[in-house]
């Protein structure tokens, strides 16, 4: 292939590429830019060459807040001496003065002696991606807000519906369960519905029962959303039972919570200490059913409850659900958007 022919081919590749490509010399001046780069920046190659200054000062001289952006601080500039394929996101300034987000990849160009003589930079316009991320963020915020409001509304409906009941206890039981659910949702909301910290979940669930009465010992772990919600309810029921009948019903009783995790296998122990003598029949109903039956079935967990002299001991062995099976909020957002429009 002749030199002329190969140059023509190279020219065709560059002109038709949809990604903007800049070639910089050792002074950080632009020596070449392709058609996509001209479209992206608003400048023609000849305009940029005529400016006779570092490219940074033409298309990257302002920060998103409008302040001056010196060349020395530019991360793309840092690609010049050593690094191959330096990647990142930046905000460029268009010829018309508007700012736009881009993703860049910058690599040094070397001569035969491996001396760096310039930089090649690919730049992609990521306005659409940024806008989509922003829409997603707004939708998640809206969803979080609605979940919280819905739980508060349910709480109010229960309070209004049962206000004439002389026995306040059922409503109290309901409120404390609803609030346990709500606390789990708060943790998930703070984590964008991706995962929750086991330690934080335990802390937050036991908090209403008097944090100093518990000792916690075990490694932190990310939990999937579904496991988080059910575990919160399980811990809440254990705590409620302890404060009604178990170790937390007497002044110097406490609960020791310990756990270990090996290869995603969680071993969890709830041990009531210094409690009154408890007998199995006291522990029945909703909490027992939730823990022994539902929780065990939902996660293939092995649950062992024994009533020792000093109080209840509850041991759980369960394989933590993997994140690959988890429902991803993002993938359902278009559908949620539709629902939002209908209601």
């Amino acid at each position: 292939m002749s030199l002329l022919e190969s140059e023509r081919q190279l020219q065709a590749v560059l002109s038709n590429a949809t990604v903007a490509i800049f070639l910089m010399d050792e002074r950080q001046h632009c020596a070449y830019m392709n058609r996509a780069a001209e479209e992206l920046t608003g400048f023609t190659l000849s305009e940029v060459l005529a400016r006779d200054c570092p490219l940074h000062d033409v298309i990257h001289h302002k920060r998103p807040d409008g302040s001056h952006f010196p060349l020395e601080e530019c991360p793309i500039d840092r690609a010049f001496p050593t690094n191959d394929r330096e990647q990142g996101e930046e905000v460029f300034v268009h010829k018309d003065g508007s700012l736009y987000p881009v993703a860049f990849t910058a690599s040094p160009i070397r001569d035969k002696e491996a001396q760096v003589i310039g930089t090649i930079i690919e730049v992609r316009d990521i306005r659409e991606e940024k806008a989509a991320q922003e829409r997603q963020r707004l939708l998640i915020n809206e969803l979080n807000h609605r979940v919280k409001n819905t739980l508060a509304t349910v709480q109010s409906i229960a309070a209004q519906s049962f206000r004439t009941l002389s026995d306040r206890e059922p409503l109290e039981v309901f409120n404390s369960r609803l609030l346990a659910l709500s606390r789990a949702h708060t943790i998930l909301t703070d984590e964008n519905w991706e995962s929750a910290s086991l330690l934080l979940l335990i802390e937050s669930t036991i908090e209403p029962f008097g944090r100093p009465r518990f000792t916690l010992k075990g490694p932190d772990q990310r939990l999937t959303t579904k496991f988080t919600v059910t575990l919160a309810m399980v811990l809440h029921e254990l705590a409620v039972n302890a404060s009604k009948h178990g170790s937390l019903s007497v002044s110097d009783g406490r609960v020791d919570i310990t756990w270990s995790i090996e290869d995603a296998q969680l071993h969890f122990e709830w041990v009531e200490v210094n409690g009154p003598k408890v007998s199995p029949p006291q522990y029945a109903g909703f909490g027992s059913r939730l823990i022994r039956r539902q929780f065990a079935m939902e996660f293939n967990a092995e649950v062992n409850m024994s009533f020792k002299q000093a109080g209840l001991v509850c041991m759980v062995d369960v394989r933590l659900p993997s994140f690959t099976d988890q429902f991803h909020l993002g993938q359902y957002l278009p559908a949620l958007n539709e629902v939002g429009r209908d209601t």
């Binding site: 579904k226 059910t230 309810m233 079935m297 939902e298 293939n300």
Partner: peptide, 26 residues
């Protein structure tokens, strides 16, 4: 039904109406 609390509700509603219920959560 894979949600513990919802499974309990469905089971109770059906049992209260005289059905026998078998639950699977997975």
């Amino acid at each position: 039904e894979d949600e513990s609390l919802v499974a309990m509700l469905v089971e109770d509603i059906l049992v209260d109406s005289g059905y026998d219920v078998i639950v699977a959560m997975r």
